[in-house]
Write a protein that binds this DNA or RNA. Structure first.
Length: 154
DNA sequence: GCCAACGTTGGC
DNA sequence: GCCAACGTTGGC
């Protein structure tokens, strides 16, 4: 079983939105490397849900893969900001899995805290300038982050 | 709001 | 196929 991390700006789609909807198609990713990771996701795998850009920046909860990737419908929708005129139904370019809500952490684990943990130093998330919005996570990293949710902030 | 880092585009 | 220009991401 692999582990993953997805980024989202909470004003666009937050862990609370995820909690409310229970399931959502993770559409709109328009980066090839990220797309390839989305296509590798298997049902049941756990995904860290990261809030970017807005305070508190950090890991807000965990979701799970509910279905493997299907062609992203927004690439065919002319009215969508994610429309891609080069994509066709016969030859789609973008794919998205369905994600389902698992849990919201009692506190968002802040980015600064993640940076202070040695065991997480290799995460793409923490590499300077990394903008990858879907990325793999090592099991050890996943567990280390879950542990942080039990730490009471001082 | 700034800007560094990155991915993509397009001219050659 | 190179690479400059551009747009976007995302932390600060």
């Amino acid at each position: 079983m692999a582990y993953w991390l997805v980024k989202s700006e909470p004003s666009v789609y937050s862990i609370d939105d995820m909690c409310r909807e229970k399931r959502t198609l993770w559409h709109g990713v328009r980066n090839y490397q990220a797309r390839n990771f989305l296509r590798s996701m298997k049902v049941g795998e756990q995904v860290l849900f990261y809030h970017s850009s807005e305070e508190p920046i950090g890991v807000a909860g965990v979701v799970a893969v509910a279905s493997t990737a299907v062609p992203d419908p927004s690439q065919f929708d002319k009215k969508s900001e994610y429309f891609d005129e080069q994509a066709t139904r016969e030859n789609p370019r973008w794919f998205c899995p369905e994600l389902q809500f698992l849990k919201k952490f009692p506190r968002t684990i802040p980015l600064v805290e993640l940076k202070s943990i040695r065991a997480l130093a290799k995460m793409p998330l923490l590499q300077r300038g990394s903008r990858l919005s879907v990325q793999p996570v090592q099991e050890s990293e996943f567990e280390a982050i879950l542990k942080l949710t039990q730490v009471v902030a001082t």
